[in-house]
Amino acid sequence: MPIPSPTLYPPFNVIRLSHVEFGVTNLAASRAFYVDTLGLQVTDENDEAIYLRALEERGHHCLILRKASSSLIKALSFKVFDDAQLDLAETWFRDRGHAVDWVERPYQGRTLATVDCFGTPIEFYFKMDRLAPIHQKYALYHGVKPLRIDHFNCFSPDVDKAVAFYGELGFRVTEYTEDEESGRLWAAWTHRKGGVHDMAFTNGTGPRLHHTAFWVPTPLNIIDLLDLMATTGYVANIERGPGRHGISNAFFLYILDPDGHRIEIYCSDYQTVDPDLEPIRWDLKDPQRQTLWGAPAPRSWFENGSVFEGVEPYASGLKASPIIAP
């Protein structure tokens, strides 16, 4: 199926992904992982939640860890261009039959909660509390030295449908994987902020969150993190990598937090700011699409994901498969 033409003047202006809220079963264990090991900075915490930001970020948080009875995802959140965009978004979603609600969120202004075409909980806001810059406070740099949140990747039961839906909101496709036999999309990478992706979609049982990615300064920071995890009790949390993706050209590492939420550590992709940039097509069976060096991903990478609170995932009708490591 051909990639739809980009919507250059969407009904409301999303500028980037913003943050995600994880339900975690043990706040202390999660804090040790995200703060002491990865190096995210605590901006607030209590007995129920921990708010975190990365080192280049001025907004109050990019990740919320909230105590829960099971591992889950509360919502994916996006920042819009100005406050008026929120009313435009409410109208757009309501007119298409999506549930909409104005919700109170700590450290944020007006926040619109709704769902996407699969029922994935998503939220939009304009104003978040600003904090003093810390990007030159080098004493704070430790762990993998995370600079900013980079993207979400979601398991999707219908990637063509996901691309069409988010495409209406102005998300432009940068790269995609096509199943040659059916002509359907198996995966796609879409963006708003001018990188390779803010939102990616991978064929599979969904909707589920496949991973959340954080940008780091260099590939050497990833090597340092591997040494740290391997000697501090986290060797079993290393799932895949290090390596270089064919798609996006980025250097990567996939790890699992104590609740099984997948995190990608990520750097070295490319800019995509031109609105007429042509998407790059990959064949599903190309061994270099996953890893430029040819190494396939493990089966867990294609099967395991984090569920969204109150959303029942369902299987994809597309049974095509890439190369999977034995």
Rank of each mutant, 00 (worst) to 15 (best):
N237E: 15
A54T: 05
D286L: 04
R110K: 15
Q288W: 00
F155A: 02
H245T: 09
Y166V: 10
G97D: 12
F126V: 02
D158I: 06
Y107C: 05
R58N: 09
P11V: 01
S306E: 13
C154P: 07
S71D: 14
W301E: 14
R53M: 15
I238Y: 04
D83A: 15
I247Y: 08
K127H: 14
F302D: 00
G183T: 09
P121S: 04
N13V: 11
H60M: 13
Y266C: 00
G97N: 10
P2H: 00
L55K: 07
G233V: 13
C117F: 08
I324W: 06
V307F: 06
F22T: 00
D227N: 11
P10E: 11
I222N: 09
D286W: 11
T218M: 03
Y9I: 08
G59T: 14
N237C: 11
V80T: 13
T231F: 04
V100H: 12
L88S: 09
F22Q: 00
L27V: 06
I255A: 10
V235E: 15
A200T: 02
I73N: 00
V273M: 10
Y107T: 02
P258Y: 07
Q290C: 04
R289D: 00
A89G: 12
P157E: 08
S30W: 09
F12Q: 07
L76M: 04
V80S: 13
T177C: 10
T43P: 02
D198K: 05
D198I: 01
F118H: 08
A320Q: 05
G260T: 05
G143E: 05
V307T: 11
L292M: 14
Q41G: 00
E312R: 03
I149N: 07
D101Q: 15
Y51D: 03
G246C: 15
T212W: 00
Q136F: 14
V216F: 08
V100R: 06
L131V: 03
G39E: 14
K74V: 08
E45Q: 15
Y9T: 12
P258H: 06
S316C: 09
A320E: 04
P287W: 01
A164D: 14
K127L: 12
L65D: 08
I223G: 03
K161N: 10
G243E: 11
T37L: 15
D274Q: 12
G143S: 07
V311Y: 14
T25E: 04
S18V: 05
H60I: 08
E278F: 04
R299Y: 05
N46T: 02
G204I: 02
K161F: 02
Y234P: 01
S70E: 15
F165R: 01
C154I: 13
D259R: 02
V14W: 04
P10A: 13
Y266T: 00
F252R: 02
H191Y: 08
V115N: 12
D269Y: 13
E278H: 05
R240Q: 15
G233Q: 10
V144M: 07
G241W: 01
F22I: 00
T205M: 10
P10D: 14
T25M: 12
T212M: 04
D47N: 12
E175R: 10
L228V: 07
V235Y: 04
R96A: 13
S306R: 09
N46G: 14
V24Y: 05
N304G: 01
L88N: 07
T43N: 03
